[in-house]
Design a binder for these strands. Structure first.
Lengths: 203, 203
DNA sequence: TATGAAAATAAACCATGGTTTAGTTTTATA
DNA sequence: TATAAAACTAAACCATGGTTTATTTTCATA
């Protein structure tokens, strides 16, 4: 299977600038999709490809920073490169602190934009490093499926207590602890004590 | 034992500004140490207290960004708040991307500076959350202290294999595996199998 | 209240792991 | 090469954990 072709999304209300950026990015062989308004882009972002977003700061209706905030709210963490004609320092600081890749002021050197794009594309490769949340939720569900007594026993087991000790501390016999432990293994879907420890480390 | 009192270091070549910042920060009850040049500060940074640095961007000899770079090179990660009278956007972007807490332009609202200081002090508390590197190195040293055979056995143990299985796969008797396992526990300084698994998770 | 399901308890028996002791092989070094 | 230290191997014995079966208790609900 081949690597997905990255797409550079460009949003600017000035059609001349839009076309210029389009040409520049295409000239280095990257696929480009243009939008002349923020809303137009936001309506399509859900089905976006791997890539990054080049965003004008000052636009009617919705500013670039607004777009950035909106994307954050819907959990869309596409890397953003801001382009600004009239931006000020607080604006740039805010954009970067919020996670933008770069904040370029017009006129900028072509090399600066291309460098920012390279950085952005690298960053958008990362998300695959933490696909855990669903898995974690599953583990928690298993834990919640344990009875109170089983949860207590599990805590002692994880701390390395012997069944004998656990029994004494809970005021029950060792035999009972063994059964609880057996049920814990089944409910937590652990094939070995080693696996049980690793599973529970994620809680 | 009491929490260490944070110290706000201020570096600005303009004595009027320096004094004004000094008064402002002291007014909220924080300890301040002033420097009128970058070199003066750098000469004393090694023995710094918990706190943060308020740094003028434009100074003779060495700019604020130069100071930031120098601090990075010597591994000193004190949080930095930049104050700028004549800064431009690329400068601010670079400062923030390099890790500065904020980049304020004169004149700024007092509240903005105080807010930045709060953030900075919080960040300088953090280093204690990942004191791991030394610990990790220690773990690795323990692992390296295992003999080849012991490392092999350990891998099987971590995978949850029974001693019986491990013995067969290594072509030795179960009794021998048990002894290796015993030595592994000693060398890895694990009091229980549970602890062993957790220790090795960090490798 | 009657009742069935789930939880908690326990004992007997079996399997597995841990500890001790000891012999052999390998490796580094005087 | 001779020698000591470390690694590897093994067996016997003991302790611990796991599995099965069964009884009692708790709890929701018909």
């Amino acid at each position: 299977m081949s690597a997905p072709q990255p797409v550079i999304y460009i949003v600017d209300d000035d059609s001349a600038v839009l076309e210029a950026l389009n040409s520049l990015v295409r000239s280095i062989g990257l696929e480009v999709v243009c939008f002349s308004s923020a809303n137009e882009f936001l309506a399509n972002v859900k089905k976006r490809a791997h890539g990054c977003l080049i965003l004008d700061v000052r636009m009617p209706e919705m500013s670039g920073l607004d777009v950035q905030r909106t994307l954050g709210e819907i959990g869309e963490d596409i890397p953003i490169i801001f382009i600004s004609g009239h931006g000020d320092i607080p604006m740039a600081v805010k954009a970067i602190k919020t996670g933008a890749i770069d904040f370029l002021t017009k006129p900028f050197r072509e090399e600066d934009l291309l460098s920012a794009i390279r950085t952005a594309l690298q960053q958008d490769h990362q998300p695959k490093t933490s696909p855990d949340s669903a898995f974690i939720a599953d583990i928690k569900a298993r834990y919640d499926g344990l009875s109170k007594r089983e949860q207590q026993v599990l805590h002692f087991v994880l701390q390395g207590h012997l069944n004998k000790q656990t029994a004494q501390e809970l005021g029950i016999t060792e035999a009972t602890v063994k059964v609880h432990r057996h049920n814990i293994m089944k409910k937590m879907q652990a094939a070995s004590l080693q696996e049980l420890v690793r599973i529970c480390e994620k809680l």
